[in-house]
């Protein structure tokens, strides 16, 4: 059963984003991790770099697949979740608990572009 949490927003490219004031945490969804299978590597661009909505900020790899990660909103990478460098499998265990990057939100209005639970469910159903 694919889980979708209602405390956060989603992107069509299967990232989730959880806002805390002008800070946000970004990870991949339970659907994304189940499609990838055993995740073996996660990487992100460097801390301090600025990205626009839709730009690639990193990638996730399983044995036979690689998937780019897209910024759901404009922002500056504040931190990469270092524990994933050694234990990328944590994303398989809990995709929502294990964020990939922490960002400083530079354009809060973009929240309106993001998907809610129902809309994201529809995206999954399509695939």
């Amino acid at each position: 059963m694919i889980e979708i949490k209602n405390d956060r927003y989603y992107a069509e490219t299967h990232e989730w984003i959880l806002f805390e004031d002008d800070i946000a945490y970004i990870g991949i969804t339970d659907f994304a991790q189940s499609e990838l299978g055993d995740i073996v590597y996660v990487e992100s661009e460097e801390e301090g770099e600025l990205f626009e909505q839709g730009e690639i900020f990193g990638s996730v790899e399983s044995v036979k697949m690689a998937s780019d990660l897209y910024m759901p909103i404009d922002g500056e990478i504040l931190e990469f979740n270092e524990i994933l460098a050694d234990e990328p499998e944590l994303i398989n265990e809990d995709a929502y608990e294990n964020w990939i990057i922490k960002v400083k939100v530079t354009n809060p209005d973009q929240q309106n572009d993001l998907l809610g639970v129902k809309e994201y469910q529809a995206v999954i159903d399509e695939e």
């Binding site: 073996v40 590597y41 790899e61 399983s62 044995v63 036979k64 697949m65 690689a66 780019d68």
Partner: peptide, 13 residues
């Protein structure tokens, strides 16, 4: 191993 770098998986990337 580390095959996600390669053409048969990442194609043009």
């Amino acid at each position: 191993t580390i095959q996600a770098r390669e053409q048969h998986i990442r194609r043009e990337k």
